Computed example of a mutant assay.
Amino acid sequence: MTAPGESGEGTLPWVRDRVRALVDNVELVVHGNTDMVRAAVICLLAEGHLLIEGVPGVAKTTLAKAIAHSVGGRVHRIQFTPDLLPSDVVGVNIYDAANQRFEFHPGPVFANIVLADEINRASPKTQSALLEAMGERQVSIDGRTYELPAPNFVIATQNPYDHQGTYTLPEAQLDRFMMQLRLGYPAPEQELRVIGDAIARRLPEQLNPVSSTDELLRLIEVTRTVHVADPIRAYIVAVVGGTRSQPETVRLGASPRAGNALAMAAQARAAVEGREYVLPDDVKAMAVHVLRHRLILTPEAAIRGATAASVMDGILAAVPVPQAASAR
């Protein structure tokens, strides 16, 4: 299906239809997680990077692969291990004796979609190699800067921090991820389909792309045009600010970068819904995915049983919601 004309007529229904096609394609191999799949595609349209967390075996890597192989373009996978070096991620200069000069050999981060598998099993030094790439879509090596291809998305998976052999992602690294999605165990009827896929040897690598990189860039371009009214912007500021106003519960709240991420995620959700403007419901729907992993709770709050998700629920319940008419 081709993009509509530059006039813009019918553009947002086109976005909605293309996203539905992407979600349907991913769900050929990922079962029982429609909301998570949809949120992952929204993250891509919002030009964000995605962190998927869950215990081993709940299809984190399958989801990442399925998204990557549903979109045409270069896909590189990095298996993060304790002995992985930063140069294994971003690339390295190698001396060419024949030409008597150093040549840059790009690392796997030079791709349209980068699968960073089990990212928290590598050392913090190696994790930090992604900071510039994820934040600025570029890599600096020996005084030279190399632009990454467009689009460029990092889809990372990680096991919970209390699992053996994992390193806690530093706050600066977590803040580079627009969203964090948490996958749990499937329902019995969905697990039956998972077993059926295993018996049939059905793999995400076998998926046919349903979108090209050019089309994805066009989808992103359309998403950027979705209107965010001043009351919605103020609502986003109030929600993000709410994470910084509870010192007895939250030791570190969300940064201004988090507010930017929430605004762009809300834009993408509105586009996926076929709307030209953001509603408060878009902000509320994306807030937990965008803000939860950025909050660090106090030890006392953790003892009381509070979680980042429960804190976000309380903030969303307390912040006044703009009226629909003023939100447009």
Rank of each mutant, 00 (worst) to 15 (best):
L297E: 09
N112L: 13
P209S: 07
N152K: 07
R202T: 14
L174P: 08
V319S: 02
L50F: 08
G5E: 10
R101L: 03
Q138K: 15
I78M: 08
V71S: 06
D230G: 01
P247M: 09
A327W: 03
I303K: 12
V41K: 01
I199D: 05
H49A: 02
A40N: 12
E136A: 12
R233A: 13
L219S: 05
E118H: 12
G314Y: 12
G143V: 04
V55A: 12
S140H: 14
Y167F: 14
T166C: 12
E118Y: 11
L297K: 11
N25Y: 08
A64E: 06
A129W: 05
F110H: 15
S7H: 09
A59H: 13
P256A: 03
A327P: 03
A229H: 02
D35Y: 02
A265K: 08
R16S: 10
I199R: 10
Y277T: 00
P160A: 01
R328A: 03
A309R: 14
H163E: 13
L279Y: 07
I67W: 10
N208L: 13
N99H: 13
T249I: 15
I220K: 13
A46G: 07
I199W: 03
R121E: 00
G196R: 15
A187W: 12
E191H: 15
E215T: 12
P4V: 00
E248C: 04
N120D: 04
H289D: 15
A150V: 10
I195F: 11
R77S: 13
G48I: 05
T145I: 11
L181G: 10
